[in-house]
Amino acid sequence: MIRPVIPLVTAALLFGLGAYGVLRRRNAVLVLMSVELMLNAVNLVLVTGDTMRERVTGQVFALFVIVIAAAEVGVGLALVLRLFRLRQDINIDQVALDDEPRTGPPFAAPALADARSGAAAGAPTLDGEQA
């Protein structure tokens, strides 16, 4: 015998964490990660539902969600890289919807490990264009 409430509560907490992350995070990739957490919470609920009803419909839906998540990440990351190319930054607070590409040379110095990052010298960073 198992108690389905355990995975369900896990899923609820994961969903809450994901929602928190989406609202809290400023970095676009981190927002995407939080979205993944929420999607996973939903998957967990779907699979737990299967266990309670002894069917596989929930699993099928979970598979669909996983596939959609993969597609979403693909497009989302393409957007993020595009954004990084245009602005040298993926801070979503700084993106206005009618934003024009930043003028001037696209590779101004602060693109890499800049003062704000507070990273150790020589921290590995690359710019997107060269990849």
Binding site: V29, V80, L81, F84, D89, I90, A111, L112, A113, S117, G118, A119, A120, A123, P124, T125, L126, D127, G128, A131
Partner: peptide, 8 residues
């Protein structure tokens, strides 16, 4: 890593 990934 393609965008900006400082250690720390």
């Amino acid at each position: 890593m393609l965008t900006r990934a400082p250690i720390g």
